[in-house]
């Protein structure tokens, strides 16, 4: 499948800022499941720094803008050929050992409730295969966190999201990471794009899911919000411990001001004219 992506992030500042700096991870890596035909990241008049591939296999680059800046737009777009690998991440060149993803952050940190949830999810599965256990955890998250926009915040923790029983793909992902950690399975946050279908959840700015490290298979993606594993409808951008660590754009401005961010992501099947997502 050939997916065309246009991902625009527009920042508007109430008062002009003196300087803006962002770290970008906006380039899909080459893996068995995806091959980049064309890709570009436009950053208007920003100065770009040398890019490099980090240990997790993600291309990383800095941009800075000397102020006064009142608005700034980042546009990532291109064409990626995808195939279905049943969620298994193959051919991704990375060097960070899986065991580095066994520890939680402030957002994914374990609580007694999360541990109990992991136990409940895996009840009677002691003899099950690692892959089946991972599926059971993902299923548990799908069953216990209902997709509901605007009920959680970016800073909502995994424990809070599970307790509230509602959230968006970011929350599903954080809860699944935490449950995996409770079961001693390395897990991480993955950002990317998804071609939405009629019944898919997570029509957000950009999509997110979890990868669990399954013994014998390596990293396997689980999209608990959509009760599936990433397939040819997905493009993988980058990974991290949690949403903040994995963010495709991490930025900071010099000068106190209110910032409005308008993100629009359009993913289309290049063979057909199709769906677009837009969200404020």
């Amino acid at each position: 499948m050939k997916l065309r992506v246009r991902h625009v992030s527009r920042y508007v500042f109430d008062a002009p800022v003196k300087r803006l700096a962002q770290s970008h991870r906006l380039w899909p890596a080459e893996t068995q499941g995806q091959s980049v035909i064309q890709w570009s990241v436009e950053t208007e008049n920003a100065v770009t720094g040398s890019g490099f591939r980090d240990g997790a296999g993600d291309w990383t680059q800095t941009v800075t803008v000397k102020g006064p800046v009142s608005e700034f737009t980042v546009t990532a777009e291109g064409l990626v050929e995808t195939s279905d690998t049943s969620g298994v991440l193959r051919g991704h060149r990375e060097r960070v050992p899986a065991s580095a993803y066994l520890t939680g952050t402030r957002i994914t940190g374990l609580t007694a409730e999360l541990r109990m949830a992991a136990e409940a999810a895996l009840e009677g599965m002691d003899a099950a295969s690692p892959l089946d256990r991972a599926h059971a955890l993902a299923r548990y998250v799908s069953d216990h966190v209902v997709f509901a926009p605007n009920r959680t915040e970016p800073a909502t923790t995994a424990a809070e999201a599970l307790e509230g029983g509602e959230g968006v793909c970011q929350d599903h992902t954080h809860v699944l990471i935490a449950l995996a950690h409770a079961a001693d399975i390395p897990a991480r946050y993955v950002t990317g794009y998804m071609l939405s279908t009629e019944d898919s959840q997570g029509a957000e700015a950009s999509h997110a899911w979890a990868e669990l490290h399954v013994h014998g298979l390596g990293w396997v993606g689980f999209d608990a919000a959509n009760r599936c594993c990433p397939n040819e409808y997905y493009i993988r951008l980058g990974s991290g411990y949690d949403a903040s660590d994995a963010a495709p754009i991490r930025g900071i401005v010099d000068g106190a001001t209110q910032e409005t961010l308008d993100v629009s992501v359009a993913v289309t099947d290049s063979a057909r004219q199709s769906q677009s997502q837009r969200q404020q």
Binding site: A21, S23, S50, F52, T62, T64, R250, I252
Partner: peptide, 22 residues
């Protein structure tokens, strides 16, 4: 931009410059 997002002591983007050999 790499570690604690609330750090006021650091330099935004420093780790990328460091990791790309600058």
């Amino acid at each position: 931009l790499c570690f604690r997002p609330d750090s006021m002591l650091g330099i935004p983007g420093l780790m990328n410059v460091y990791r790309s050999g600058g």
